[in-house]
Design a protein around this nucleic acid. Sequence first.
RNA 1: GGGCGGUUAGCUCAGCUGGUUAGAGCGCCUGCCUUACAAGCAGGAGGUCGCAGGUUCGAGCCCUGCACUGCCCA
Length: 930
Amino acid sequence: MRRRELPKAYDPAAIEDRWAEYWVRERLFDVKTPKAGADERAFTVLLPPPNVTGNLHMGHMFEHTEADILVRWHRMRGELTLWVPGTDHAGIATQMLVERQLTSEGTSRQALGREAFVERVWQWRAHYGGAILASMKRIGDTVDWSREYFTMDENLSHAVREAFVRLYEQGLIYRGAYIVNWCPRCQTAISDLEVTHEEQQGKLWEIRYPVVGAPGDFLTVATTRPETMLGDVAVAVNPLDERFRRLIGKTLRLPLVGREIPVIADEWVKSDFGTGAVKVTPAHDANDFAMGQRHNLPAIAVMDETAHMNAEAGVYAGLDRYEARKRILEDLEAQGLLAAARDYVNAIGKCARCATVVEPRLSTQWFIAVNKQATPGGPTIASLAIDAVKPDAEGRRAIRITPENNEKVYLEWMTNLYDWCISRQLWWGHRIPAWHCATCKQISVAREDPARCAHCGSAQITQETDVLDTWFSSGLLPVTVFGWPPADGKPTADLTAFYPTSLQLTGFDILFFWVARMIMLGCWFMQELPLADGSRRTLRDIVPFREVHIHALVRDADRQKMSKTKGNVIDPVAIVQKYGTDAVRFTLASMASPGTDIAFNEARTEGYRAFANKIWNAARFIFMNVERAREAGISVDRSMLGHMPSVPPYAPIEARWIAARASSVASQVNAALGEYRFHEAANLVYQFFWGDFCDWYLEIVKLRLDFSDTADKAYTREALTTLLQTFETALRLLSPIMPFITEELWHALYESHGGAPSAQSIALSRYPQGVAQTNDAVEGDFALLQELIVAVRGLRKDLGVEEKLAVPIRVHAPTSGLPFAGNLEIIQRLARVSGIEAVDALPEGAATRATPQFDVQVVYEKKIDTAAERERLTKELTRYEQEQERAQRQLGNEAFLAKAPAAVVEGLRKRAAELVVLIEKTRRALEELG
RNA sequence: GGGCGGUUAGCUCAGCUGGUUAGAGCGCCUGCCUUACAAGCAGGAGGUCGCAGGUUCGAGCCCUGCACUGCCCA
C-alpha cells in the first residue's frame, strides 16, 4: 500500500492539466459505431461547432458545462454516449479577420487574388483554429476526438455540394434579383438574421415634390433617407387618404434630378406616418421594392457595392452615402424644397459582424424556396420543419423544445419565413457549384465540375463566384457528420446508430440561425433515405434531434451582454486559472436555472473553490484514517467500494442517517438532471457534501474511528466502511459537475486500498441511483438530535460559555422515545457537553431553549444577558403568536376544513398544537426573566 | 408598433403542478487558530416577495391593470 500525502490546501493547477491530458490520451470517450442491430441505447449530442476564429468565451464554457454534465451523466448511467466535436469555417467572420490582418500588412484580399487569399485563410485557420479545441480539452469536455470535423473538410464539402445540387434539381434553389441586406464593408449580401437593429436618434425630413403642370403645388413626402431620392420612381399615398386623392395618377417632378414620377396609391402606406406620402425607391428599400413589383415600376440603383453614389446619382456620383445626404439636403434647402426636419427615433440595421450600417440593395442572389412544394401536394421545407415541432393530435412532438415557450417562438418564425438567401459574395466558404455559360447565358449546376455548358455544350463557362452561407453547411451537420450522403442509398452505420441525435443544446440567439436550419435541411434530406431495414422513415426518424434545450445567456456581473467593444468580456481561461475548472463549472451549473440569464459573478466561484477545498480536506481526513487503520491492522475490503453505503439496522444512527441521505439525494439529483435543472442538482450535492457529510457525519464518525489496542476492531471497520462508501458515492455523484477533483480523489481512494479502481476513470463508473423514499424514522431521530445540539450551542453562546469548556446540560422531555439517551457521546462531542441529566421538570430561573418535543438548559454559573434574552424571547413570542393567529383563523374556517386536503389540515392541526406549547413555554420563560 | 421574460434579504440568485414557519451563497455582527479544512468551525441579525385590484378556504406562485427593466421581432 502506498502512503499518499495530499497537500493541505487544494491546488487545482496541480491536478487539472494532468487529468485533462489523460482523458484525451487514453481516448476514454471515443465511441465505436455499434454493429447493425445492436440494441444499445445511444445518447448522442452534437457540439455547436465553434468558429475557427474563436477563443473560448464564457458562453461557450457554459454551454459546454451543461453538455458535459449531461453527457457524463448519461454515460455513467450505462448508455452508449457520443458527443461529436468540430469547428465551423464561419465564412464571413473568418474572412473579416484575415482581411484585417492583410490590412495591417498593407495589402488586401483583392491584391492577393482569390486563390492566394483562400490559401492564406487556410494557413490562418491552421494557426488559430485549434485554440478553442485546446480549451475544450482543458475544461474537461468528454467529446469523441476521433470524430472531430471541420465544416470545410473534404467529405463535408462533398455533402454540401450534393445537398445544393439536389435542392436545385428539385427546383427549390433559384437565382434572382431581390432586395437583400448588403454590408458595404464586407461587400456581401447577408441574411435577415445577420442584421441587428438598433434604435438611433435620427431625423425625418419632409421634402416638397413639385406637381407637374401645377406651379406652386407640391406633394410633401417624409423620409429618413433623403440620399436615396435620386432613385425614386414614384410617390405613394394610401388610397383612402382624402388629402391626396386628387393627386393620384398625377405626375411629380423629382427634385434635383428632374425625372417625372407618378403618384401611386398603395395600401401599405400609413396615412399617419410622416406626411402620409412616401417616396418609392425600389432599388434601396425592401418595402419599396415590393411596391415597385406591385405597380410594375423600374428600379434605379444609385449606389454601388461600397455604398458610394454611382453614375445614376449625377453630380453626387462618387460621394459616400452620408456625404451625399448632407449635400442633397443643402441643395434642397437652397431650392426651398426642404419643408421640415423633425427629430425621429428609428431602428437602423447593422451588420452583425462588423457593425456597419446595412444598405438594402438590389442584387442577384441565390435563394432556397422554403415554401415551395417539390412535388405536387408534397411538403415544403418549412412545412416539414413546422410539423417536426408542432404537437400532433395526441400532443406528441417529433422534436421537443424546452423551455417550452420557445416552441411558440420557433413556430411563429417558421410560419412567417421568407426564402433564405444562401449566397454570399465572399471568397472563404463552399463555392456554389454553378457554372454560367457565356454563350447561351444559362446555368449548369453539377455534382462534378463540368467542362461544358449542360444546355448548349459551349466550353465558355465560368464558375459562380459566390459562396454559400455558412449556416447552409452547419445546417447539414446532423446528417453529414454521420456520413450522409451514403454512396449506396442505404443509411450508413453511423446514421442508423446515431441519427436522430438525442439532444441539441443551444443558446436562444442561434435558434433560428442554426437549429431551425438543421431541422429544415435534416428533415428534408432524411425523408428521402429509408431506414436500415428498407422501410420508409416517419417524422420521428427524419428529424435531426429528439429534443432541443435552449440554455441561458451568460452576462457580466452587471447583467450586460458581454461584447468585445464594451470590454466586459470575462475570459473563462483566466477565471479557470484563478479558481480551477471545477469551481467555474460548478458556478455555471449552480446558476443554470432554465430560462433565466446568468449574471456571472466571481464571488460565487470563490465560494465553490472553497467547496472544492472542503472536499479535498474531507479526503485528507479520510486518507489519514485509512492510514491509521492500516497501522492498527484494520482494512476495508476494496470490493466494498463502488456502491451506495449499505448499513445494517443495528449500525449507529449517523451511519444509518447518512446512508438514507445519500440515497435520497442521489435520487433527487438524477431527477433534477433529467429535467435540465442543473442548479438544483448542484445545490443538492453541495448541501449533501458540505452540510450533511462534513458538518455532521464526519464530526460524529470521529467518535467511531477508534484505532487503539482496546478498540472493537469490527466496530471500527464498519464505521470506516460506511465512511469510505459514502465518500466514494459522493464523488461519483459530484463527478459530472466537478470532474477533476473527483477523478483525482477517486483514484487516490482506490490507491489507498492497494490498487487500481474498477474503471479507468470515474467518468466510466456508474452513477449512484438512490430511492426517493427515505428512511423517515432515522431522519426524524437525527433531526431531533441536531435540534438539541443546535439548541445547546445557542444557549452556550447566550451564556457566554467559552468555546473550549464542556458544560453539563439538563433535558426535559415529556414524551419517551427521544433519541438522546442512546446517543450521549454524540451530544457531548458536538455540543461540548460534559454530562446530560434527564429531569422531570427544569428548574426555574435558568435560560431554557424550548421545542415542541423537549426543553433544554445549560448548567453554568454565569448569568445570562437578561436584556438580550428578553428581546430574543419577545421576538420569538410575537412570531409564534402571529403564526397561531393565522393557524386558528384557518382552522376555524369551515370552508378550509371542507376543501383543503386532509394532509394539509392535519399538518396545520399538529402545528397549532405545537404552537400552544411553544407559546406557553416562551411566556413562562419571559416571566421567569422578570 | 408586436411578442416574450424579469422585479423575492445589502449583493447574486433558488422557490417545480397555489398548501403548515419564503431558502442558499456572498457580505455583515459575535465568538473560536476545536489535530481534515481560517478557502475553516459555531452562533446570529437581515425579507409588508415591484405597486394596485381580483380569483380562492388559502396567493411569492393564478387573473387584470400599472410602474420599472431586459431581450426578440418589425
